[in-house]
């Protein structure tokens, strides 16, 4: 299949991005690329700037300096095109607890202007792929944290975005739920060409074949394919790499 101009472009292209809360710098002149069709982990300890970056990527916060392009579309100037190709899973749970799972997805579909025709099947298929179809008519309030996360992922993928942004989606979940979610997103990248940017501070969620951006104190400490980075820094695993590049730094 021939690639169109936009598809050939990077999934996310960030150039010279800086952000400060008053005098406190949260992001300091970041530039990086998230490749199309790849699972890219954005790894960093708490306070590294991951959520700030996500809020800028999702236009919740306004850019102060720098540029963000989504599949070649400037997020500021062509926000409609950029936002249409994006699915988002926020760190904070964002489902309406008093609506059912299906109603939450219907509401999201309306916000994205998805046509009614075929929508119910689309919702069922998406929920089914995350083993949540049986809970479709239950109120979200009745679901546990892991199941709520699955619903949020189903919702974020409902409009078939090319890019999925996930901000620490496994925080607070048990190990089986975490593994299931990590594995599901990897599968989406491998089989459907989804581009995923996965923010986390949990090193075991990053696989050797993934791409990695290591963020610390608002700036990038390393980026590239995990396997290459391990080799370059002579580390056995991501935990050792994280320790070498982040934890070894003196506390400010």
């Amino acid at each position: 299949m021939a690639l169109t101009e936009n598809e050939a472009a990077a999934g996310i292209q960030i150039s010279d991005l800086s952000y400060a809360y008053g005098a406190k710098k949260a992001l300091d002149n970041l530039s990086f690329t998230v490749k199309t069709g790849r699972f890219t982990a954005l790894l960093g300890p708490n306070g590294a700037g991951k959520s700030t970056l996500y809020h800028l990527l999702t236009r919740i916060m306004k850019l102060q300096a720098g540029q963000i392009e989504i599949f070649g579309s400037d997020l500021n100037r062509s926000s409609l095109t950029a936002m249409t190709s994006m699915g988002i899973v926020f760190q904070q749970q964002t489902l309406d607890l008093d609506l059912t799972v299906r109603q939450n997805l219907r509401y999201f579909a309306a916000l994205h202007g998805l046509p009614h025709r075929g929508l119910e099947d689309q919702i069922s298929n998406r929920l089914s792929s995350l083993d949540m179809l049986e809970r479709a008519d239950e109120k979200v309030r009745a679901l546990n944290g892991g199941h709520r996360r699955r619903v949020e992922i189903a919702r974020a993928l409902l409009h078939e975005p090319k890019l999925l942004l996930l901000d620490e989606p496994t925080v607070g979940l048990d190990v089986p739920s975490r593994k299931a979610i990590v594995s599901y997103i990897h599968k989406q990248c491998q089989e459907r060409g989804l581009t995923a940017l996965w923010a986390t501070h949990l090193v075991d969620e990053v696989l050797p074949e993934d791409d990695l951006i290591l963020l610390h104190r608002g700036s990038i400490r390393a980026q590239g394919c995990v396997a290459d980075l391990l080799k370059k820094h002579n580390c056995d695993d991501v935990a050792a790499l994280f320790e070498t590049l982040v934890l070894a730094e003196p506390v400010e």
């Binding site: 299949m1 690639l3 169109t4 936009n6 598809e7 199309t36 069709g37 409609l80 095109t81 249409t84 190709s85 309406d96 609506l99 109603q103 219907r106 509401y107 579909a109 309306a110 916000l111 994205h112 202007g113 998805l114 046509p115 009614h116 409009h159 078939e160 975005p161 090319k162 089989e191 459907r192 060409g193 989804l194």
Partner: peptide
């Protein structure tokens, strides 16, 4: 690698706007 189809750009038509309005009214009513 299979590339995902580009999502339709729904700039020119009115219907996404009406669907969005209906969705928000429906949720508020519910």
């Amino acid at each position: 690698m299979t590339l995902m189809p580009s999502p339709p750009i729904r700039r020119a038509t009115l219907s996404p706007y009406l669907r969005c309005l209906w969705g928000i009214v429906w949720r508020e009513g519910l």
